[in-house]
Amino acid sequence: MDPYAIIVKPHVTEKTMNLIDQNNELTFVVNRESNKNSIKRAIEQLYDVKVEKVNTHISSKGIKLAYIKLTEEEDAEDIAVKMGVF
């Protein structure tokens, strides 16, 4: 599947901004049919980073969120700046 079809957009809230700073995690709205492996491959292809783990959550509004924890070598804040979150 195309990485652009899997990753819909970054999810930016006060909580996700804290996750970037404290846990080296990024949060994205993803396609509802995507699984953790496809999300991991899409993030690694699009942003050229190494992903440690992926957690997913379907919100009460029916939106699937993916919490992407990056490896220690990667910096989530740098990726967020490149995406225009800051």
Rank of each mutant, 00 (worst) to 15 (best):
E25S: 06
R41D: 15
L46N: 08
S34M: 08
D21M: 09
K9D: 09
I58P: 05
K61A: 14
L26C: 05
A42V: 09
K36E: 15
T13S: 15
I7W: 00
A66S: 07
I20A: 10
S59T: 15
A42T: 03
N31L: 08
E77N: 10
N35L: 02
G84V: 10
D21P: 00
R41C: 07
I20H: 00
M1I: 10
I7N: 01
D48C: 08
K82I: 11
K15N: 09
F86R: 13
K40Q: 12
F86G: 14
T27Y: 04
A76Q: 02
S38L: 05
K9F: 00
Q45G: 06
I79W: 02
M83K: 06
Y67F: 13
P10F: 05
V85Y: 05
A80V: 12
E14N: 09
A76G: 15
K64Q: 06
D2P: 12
I58M: 13
K36T: 12
M17T: 03
H57Q: 09
G84D: 12
N24Y: 10
D78E: 15
S38V: 02
S59H: 03
I7K: 04
I43L: 04
T27F: 02
R32C: 04
G84K: 10
Y4H: 11
R41Q: 15
T56M: 09
A80K: 10
E14Q: 14
K15G: 00
S38R: 08
A5S: 15
T16V: 06
E72F: 13
K61T: 09
T71E: 11
R41P: 02
Y47E: 04
V81Q: 12
V12L: 15
L19M: 14
T71M: 07
Q45L: 13
I39W: 06
K53V: 08
F86C: 10
R32S: 14
H57R: 13
L65S: 04
N37D: 03
T56E: 02
I6W: 03
V49F: 08
K36Y: 06
D2H: 05
A66P: 07
N31R: 12
E77M: 13
K69T: 13
E14S: 11
H11S: 08
T71R: 10
I63W: 00
V81H: 13
N18C: 02
I43Q: 09
K15Q: 12
R32A: 11
E25V: 15
E25P: 00
P10K: 07
K82L: 10
L70R: 03
H57N: 13
L19A: 12
T71Y: 14
E77K: 09
R32Q: 12
